[in-house]
């Protein structure tokens, strides 16, 4: 028994040393990768100082033409959206940005499955593991999963699922993945195979933690003008799923712009790449409409 316990302890000690070495290598690569998705992550977390910041999921990345927003509104703009990102990650990224900068306009693209529906929120914080040491991030991790503070002791866990890809991007830079000021247009026509026939959007069970993060996001924005925007979707959207965020916006006096059931876009193949994402033409058209709304809103 004694021999067994001693060997287990020795095993854990060797594992600890490996973990530290991986941490040193991982931290170096994470800080020095300047292209691709990790370069974009680093830019958002450490450098972005644009006047307009756009947050949200892949719908944000593909829908908000950042150069067009810059030109039309006369302010610099960066699209901080990310695939599968929801309000939880948006808050984390805004928190990092607010450490050094105060944007003038903040746009959060609303997508109910990521921002309203009940689900496992720990999947969103994975993107923030590299920034765990920064102010407010550890508290955020703990609010979502109490075990995170123990898990994050391990560097192997910190770089779980991405170290190999980070290395790849570090060795073979991929500037094309950074997009145009973060905006990545889909240059392909509608893929009808990717449209679910007779799709009926379910009414989601509301996740109070996500709504709590909607409030935190508004608080964190400070004096910036905040817009919660529902960008177009081919299927249209069930307004019932938007109600919880709409109610918060009304209560907090935040602008809520809804394009989800705009007849110009619903079932219009010309503007879409698939059922949930606009193509480049659609993104341009939508950004123009959004600019119009923002201008109208600013005159009020």
């Amino acid at each position: 028994m004694k021999k067994f316990i001693l060997k287990v302890c020795l095993f854990l000690a060797v594992l600890f040393i490996i973990d530290r070495i991986v941490g040193i290598i991982g931290n170096y690569v994470a800080c020095n990768v300047h292209t691709g998705v990790y370069g974009r992550d680093n830019y958002i977390g450490n450098e972005a100082t644009e006047d307009i910041l756009v947050f949200g999921s892949s719908r944000a990345v593909h829908h908000y033409n950042a150069p067009m927003l810059s030109d039309s509104l006369g302010m610099t703009c960066y699209n901080c959206g990310d695939d599968g990102c929801g309000i939880v990650l948006s808050y984390g990224r805004l928190l990092l940005n607010k450490e050094r900068h105060s944007p003038k306009i903040i746009i959060q693209d609303v997508f109910p499955p990521n921002d309203v529906a009940m689900g496992d929120n720990s999947r969103y914080i994975g993107f923030l593991k590299s920034f765990y040491h920064r102010e407010g991030i550890a508290e955020m991790f703990e609010s979502i999963d109490k075990t995170q503070k123990y898990k994050m002791i391990s560097n192997l866990y910190k770089y779980n699922g991405k170290l190999h890809h980070m290395f790849f991007v570090y060795l073979f830079p991929r500037p094309s993945e950074e997009g145009l000021q973060g905006f990545r247009p889909s240059n392909s026509a509608m893929d009808t195979m990717k449209v679910v026939k007779n799709y009926q959007e379910p009414v989601y069970e509301v996740d109070s933690q996500k709504l709590e993060y909607v409030n935190k996001f508004i608080d964190c924005a400070g004096n910036a003008k905040v817009y919660f925007v529902v960008s177009p979707i081919w299927y249209g959207m069930n307004p019932q799923n938007l109600k919880p965020i709409k109610d918060i916006c009304k209560k907090r006096n935040v602008s809520f712009l809804d394009f989800s059931n705009d007849a110009k876009y619903v079932h219009n193949n010309q503007y879409f790449h698939d059922g949930a994402h606009l193509n480049a033409d659609g993104a341009d058209e939508f950004t123009k409409d959004l600019i119009k709304k923002i201008r109208e809103d600013s005159k009020k």
């Binding site: 095993f11 594992l15 490996i18 999963d145 192997l156 866990y157 699922g161």
Partner: peptide
């Protein structure tokens, strides 16, 4: 033996899907 154990456990922690 130990190199193999380490390889497997590091693979689990680096590439495993937790949660």
């Amino acid at each position: 033996r130990w190199t193999t154990y380490m390889f497997v456990i590091v693979s689990i922690m680096l590439f495993g899907l937790f949660g």
